[in-house]
Design a protein around this nucleic acid. Structure first.
Lengths: 356, 356
DNA sequence: GGCCACGACTAAACCGGTTCAAAGCACGAT
DNA sequence: ATCGTGCTTTGAACCGGTTTAGTCGTGGCC
């Protein structure tokens, strides 16, 4: 038998097979099914392999044959590096990676972009989409190739699992907390409602057009609470900012605090925005919560460390990551929808309005 | 010609080729080298593919043929999820991912573990080892397979590039800062010196046995500065802690601050340790920097936000990540050694000793 | 002594593409 | 009419393994 063991100088499994005069299957078995060989032959194979400088079966080829990569993909809608700027995303990643290391899987971070993700998607066994966008188009390749996937925080898709939280209720709870304290003039710091990069004061039309699910739901939550308390939603100013870097919250809050009458409480859709708002309050010489109360969303670690400590809506970021990954390991449950609990964490940044 | 286009029901490139009566090469070219086909045929191919439900060339097979994965691997010595707990590591990851997304590469996070990393290592084109350990053993598979790799912060290895900082000088600068302020009684909060999980007060013997490069170098830096100022190094207590979670720094600092005479200044090998030390000072009712000065290392974002803001040694985490990734894109420079600058950032947590 | 089970090993198909040298062909130049 | 030229398209090798269905020889059992 000729197996062409020396192709172009590379040492392959066939090289080893030829050197020993055994079949390639035998060498393969020496690595993958040791019990199918006599101990003597297995030793000879391994020894010869070492002498020849053969580093063992090429994982890529093995993968192609087996059809399994042992890797989980993570698609993010923004550039991947943004995920590392967002403390909430980092917690989420931590959760995912905990499962990966436990299951001995690699975690493949795939940068967004309409085509980028697509091209590489098959070097993984399954995909987590950590994005809240109208992503149907972007995910076409994943769907076409039949890869199992889970959407986190984003839209509910037919063939995919879903992990999220009750954004609406979380937001409503935050708003109700302020209303219960007696606040009547609120302001909202919003994450993007539409993926057009726009920043400014949001009118009702844009509120209706909101495409990001989390933003839309949180806005609705705020609104429901405000109206339930008997106030007019149209009187609540909403400032939308692209929230990378704390500066976005600072600018949004500056705009809100410049209004007359000045809001006595700010609702931020993320802790990053809220922490920026605290800076803006300091800029304006306003005390928190004496002059203005601030409530965030996420409960990132920095929220508890802030001065004053930030009142916020806790969502289980790490747990979301864990759950998303675990769903993909149990294909039967992939199509399920999971809604994790949120919880208001009252700290020092919220209090009664100045006049009360 | 028979190409067996329908194997077991899966739609492959061959299926499309057969359906059209063209060769597989032509179908392949339709996707990869459109200009080599007449526009008419290319359209027919693409149309037919769509009709048949063919999702395009399987990336795994393509990869095997081409020999290029378009992915960068990242090996971490601790479990991967720990990287997401360490703000410095997160910044580093951000740098790496910036390059990846720019170059359209996937980033593959490979959990440590003696064998885990090994098995999967070849689903990447090159590897960044973000670990500071005697890792020669762990990296054997990478070396054997001939993958280019770069070590960050760790030992200098023969065939690999290296990215790091001047830990010794950075530490010395931090210590000199305190000595210049007039401090004479220092204490050190150390990251692990040996990978045995031990915690406690470090004696000289253990200092000599330090295996982690960064810890060892920083310790030497502290020592050099102390001795240059005419003080005895043996009088400086060193507390070693496994530094995950801020609590480690709190415990280490508590131990140091319980000593009599009490140190008036603490040198921490990381900002996380330093921030923990600030908590310990608060626990003990000590003012920072009035009663005790604290200096960190890393300049993570939380350092500037702390109260008081933390004096620390800045190292360019993000830049380290970028550089490591870029080195792997230019093989010629892979074996180079790069030492990035450090810089003392004086903020509010350091000041003269109480008596001065 | 015959039959069968069993362990060790192999042949060949398969995974799903990419690529290169060469063939076929139309067309303009000589 | 002949010869090159350039564009399409193809055949076949190649990437580096895994796996299934055997083959072959041997020892145990009746």
């Amino acid at each position: 038998m000729q197996t062409d063991g020396r192709r172009g100088g590379r040492v392959t499994l066939a090289t080893v097979a030829d050197a020993l005069g055994v079949s390639r299957a035998t060498v393969s078995n020496a690595y993958n099914h040791p019990e199918r060989l006599s101990a003597a032959l297995r030793d000879r194979v391994l020894t010869t392999a070492r002498e020849l400088g053969y580093a063992g079966p090429h994982p890529l080829a093995a993968t192609l044959s087996r059809g399994r990569v042992n890797a989980l993909g993570l698609v993010y809608d923004d550039p991947m590096s943004f995920a590392f700027r967002d403390p909430a995303a980092v917690l989420f990643l931590q959760g995912v990676s905990e499962v990966c290391e436990h299951e001995d899987l690699a975690l493949v971070l795939i940068s967004g972009g309409p085509e980028g993700a697509v091209a590489r998607v098959a070097l993984v066994d399954a995909v987590i989409c950590y994005c809240d966008v109208p992503i149907e188009g972007k995910l076409a390749a994943i769907v076409d190739r039949g890869l199992p996937f889970v959407v986190v925080d984003g839209p509910r898709l037919p063939s995919a699992g879903h992990v999220g939280i009750d954004d609406r209720r979380g937001a409503a709870t935050a708003a109700r907390h302020l209303l219960d304290l007696g606040h009547t003039r609120l302001g909202v710091l919003a994450m993007p409602l539409v993926d057009d990069g726009w920043e400014g004061t949001v009118d009702e039309d844009r509120q209706d057009r909101a495409r990001y699910r989390a933003s839309r739901e949180r806005l609705i939550g705020y609104r429901e609470a405000v109206e339930a308390a008997g106030h007019r939603w149209s009187a609540v100013p909403v400032e939308e900012r692209v929230p990378y870097g704390r500066d976005a919250g600072r600018r949004a809050a500056a705009a809100l605090l410049a209004r007359r009458p000045r809001p006595t409480a700010l609702l931020a859709m993320s802790d990053e925005l809220a922490l920026g708002a605290m800076a803006a309050a300091a800029d304006a010489g306003l005390a928190v919560p004496g002059d203005v109360s601030i409530v965030g969303f996420d409960d990132i670690p920095a929220a508890a460390d802030a001065h004053p400590a930030l009142t916020t809506v806790r969502q289980p970021h790490r747990e979301k990551g864990r759950l998303a990954a675990e769903l993909l390991l149990r294909p039967s449950t992939t199509a399920d929808e999971h809604r994790l609990p949120v919880e208001l964490v009252v700290r020092a940044s919220s209090g009664p309005p100045p006049w009360r």
